[in-house]
């Protein structure tokens, strides 16, 4: 527990305030964020992730409890102080297509510049190093409109970096990105947290990447918030209940959620190596079979390699397939 705590919440209530009444979404939340760590907030849609993020970033007032940022109540910060302590990356649509990367990142210096927003030499150095650290060096003079979604997100991350805030909040930073960019952005954020000793909190639906790269996970369900390292949460069955109303279960081996299928029949699967076994199980699961540990009285599948798969029925008849396609096309008929 050597890492310095930057933000802590005690009995926090979050929700909406309208027409004199408070509608609470969550009560009694307790959590903390530490410097140098990447924290991922996971949870189903509509559970209040965005409300929690907005409350922490002070864009929405809280209903009750306390929220302490660097030893001071969040309420007691004025706009300018807060803008130097918290940087945000949102999913809002901005009208910045006509600005260059350099200009957008420079906007992040606003909390530090004077009335006219003039940039000092130090400001310019910080902007340059932020652009380089997100890997947009060659794009610094490009218009935002010319960037890919992933590059746009990187530019907004660079904007948050030059705010020099110890805490950075990102609302679904990988939502619109392809798989490669998702990994790249999450990796980048983890690197920034570690090397620049910042505390980064992001909300995401990308559970796989969150499990791989987060130092801590926050699981938000209707019942409340659970915090811990990904490994502890996985091994203590905490992820199993994340989507409890839905027809999905958490697969610990694969570290991902899979559809819960009603299995009709058992099958024993043998394979030459782990990879073949994993994909054999994948195919059989999809086709509605339940992989079993013993071959007594049930059909079995022996996977020699991707082009040789032997099926043996309960009556000991053997059929050899040359691909999974052949297998999936005929196996349902064989068993019926």
């Amino acid at each position: 527990m050597g890492k310095e705590i930057i933000l802590s919440a005690k009995d926090l209530s979050i929700g909406y305030h309208s027409k004199g009444t408070n509608t609470s979404v969550h009560d009694h939340l307790n959590f903390s964020l530490r410097k140098g760590e990447l924290t991922s907030l996971l949870g189903p849609n509509g559970v209040g992730k965005s409300t929690l993020m907005r409350t922490i970033s002070a864009l929405q007032p809280r209903i009750g409890g306390s929220l302490t940022l660097e030893g001071k109540e969040l309420n007691e910060y004025n706009e300018r102080e807060r803008s130097r302590t918290i940087g945000v990356v949102l999913t809002d649509k901005a009208q910045i297509g006509g600005l260059t990367v350099n200009e957008v990142v420079a906007l992040g210096r606003q909390p530090h510049t004077g009335f006219f927003g003039r940039l000092s030499t130090r400001d310019k150095e910080l902007i340059e190093s932020a652009i380089l650290s997100v890997g947009l060096g060659i794009k610094r003079s490009s218009y935002m409109a010319e960037l890919s979604d992933g590059e746009r997100q990187k530019a907004m991350i660079a904007k948050a970096l030059v705010q020099e805030s110890p805490l950075i909040l990102l609302d679904e930073p990988t939502a619109f990105l392809d798989a490669a960019s998702r990994i790249e952005i999450t990796q980048l954020l983890h690197e920034i947290a570690t090397t620049q000793n910042r505390s980064i909190l992001l909300s995401t639906h990308d559970i796989e990447q969150a499990l791989i790269l987060s130092d801590r996970l926050w699981l938000l369900t209707k019942k409340g918030l659970k915090c811990g390292t990904p490994e502890d949460l996985v091994l203590n069955h905490q992820l199993d209940s994340l989507f409890e109303d839905k027809n999905v279960i958490f697969n610990k081996e694969r570290g991902t959620f899979v559809p819960s299928i009603k299995h009709s029949q058992g099958i024993y699967i043998k394979a030459e190596n782990e990879t073949l076994l994993r994909w054999g199980v994948n195919a059989m699961n999809r086709l509605g079979f339940r992989p079993e540990n013993s071959e007594k009285k049930i059909a079995s599948l022996t996977i020699m390699n991707a082009n040789k798969i032997i099926y043996r029925g309960t009556d000991q008849t053997e059929v050899t397939f040359n691909s999974f396609e052949e297998l999936t096309n005929t196996i349902t008929e064989l068993l019926s």
Binding site: L59, A94, Q95, Q110
Partner: peptide
């Protein structure tokens, strides 16, 4: 012309601008 700084912040949208210290 005195409003140039908040105007630039507003290009990012109100919530971003607020986070950049704009009232």
């Amino acid at each position: 012309t005195l409003l140039i700084k908040p105007l630039n912040a507003l290009l990012l949208g109100e919530r971003y601008a607020e986070n950049l210290g704009t009232n």
